[in-house]
Design a protein around this nucleic acid. Structure first.
Lengths: 183, 183
DNA sequence: CCTTACATGTAACAAGTTACATGATTAG
DNA sequence: CTAATCATGTAACTTGTTACATGTAAGG
């Protein structure tokens, strides 16, 4: 739904190949809109057919040939139109939360382990984000707006991860006593 | 991916028709796993074919006939197996966040409006959750564990919505000055 | 020698959304 | 009279994942 526009955003900043886009998505947009190379190539083909992109073939001898994509004027128009629309909040489907409705069927020991795993993953993700914050955005107030905005997208990741951890603490306060009572 | 198991969870608690399930999903699982009636009916058919459910036809005169689904022993086994596996954290794809990478292309006035819209929606959602918390869970410490767990799923919604609002405050601190500077 | 980086794709499948379809009853 | 509730579905489409496919070069 939004992947084509995420690609337009990336290409509006700078023309790129599918491979470049894959790397950029992995580095900077993993938190915002994860995308596989297969998916990216497929969408690029569609955008090309829509006339929103143009390609330029680049022949290389040492490396495989590549294709550099850029926005056409229609591509820029489509992007700006999308940017002006209010986008709906995405539905969050969280498998872990389903388990909170399983009642009797739930094995509390296993459940506790899963909560631990989720916590660890969240801590790692948070540390990763905090490291980026430190190295790239310690002087964020002096940076131009477009960098500040990227910083705020990172902050979304940080704030969400911290919220998840706070919630996990709450969960433990309820689950731990029951675990001990049961044996 | 997880919808079939969400259905098993619901049916393990109490046998139900597709319509019942749609209502339960709308009321209690909207935050956890939103699902349309079409999707639910389709998945029920699959689960039936897998042998995880049985149906019982109920003929009515005043209302359309209905079908009540219940778990088979295999259904219970499949559910417990799934509950014991660690589920991967879902990828969050947030269209709004893409806009934070749009730089020059972004119309700051429109963007500000979208942020306002997101804030309003989030406030409403939060109020809704807080109302549920008040009316059903004010005595949560005295409730049995399976209700406490459902409460914690609600808490996830509350904590996430509050985190979103905190983040929106941060965003405004950066975006508002730029808006004023630009005219 | 093995893995990673570079570079591009096709095909099959799974999951979710939207549109269409039908038909009775009840509440405002 | 109109909308909502009850009750069940089919079909087309979009989006995302996984598996398969190919081939060179550089680094450890």
């Amino acid at each position: 739904m939004s992947l084509p526009y995420a690609l337009l955003v990336a290409l509006a900043e700078k023309p790129a190949t599918g491979y470049d886009l894959m790397l950029r998505f992995r580095e900077r947009l993993a938190n915002v809109w994860p995308a596989s190379h297969q998916h990216i190539y497929r969408e690029l083909a569609k955008l090309l057919e829509l006339g929103w992109l143009t390609v330029e073939a680049i022949n290389q001898t040492e490396r495989p040939d590549k294709k550099r994509y850029s926005l056409t004027p229609q591509g820029f128009d489509a992007l700006r139109a999308w940017l002006s629309e209010v986008q709906p909040r995405p539905a969050v489907r969280h498998p872990l939360l389903i388990k909170f409705f399983a009642g009797e069927q739930l094995d509390l020991m296993k459940f506790q382990q899963e909560l631990q795993a989720f916590r660890q993953e969240t801590v790692q993700r948070l540390d990763h984000y905090l490291a980026i914050e430190q190295t790239f955005f310690s002087q964020v107030d002096t940076l131009p707006l477009h960098f500040q905005l990227q910083y705020l997208a990172l902050r979304y990741g940080i704030v969400s991860a911290q919220a998840d951890l706070n919630w996990l603490n709450e969960v433990e306060r309820f689950v731990k006593p029951s675990l001990q009572a049961s044996h």
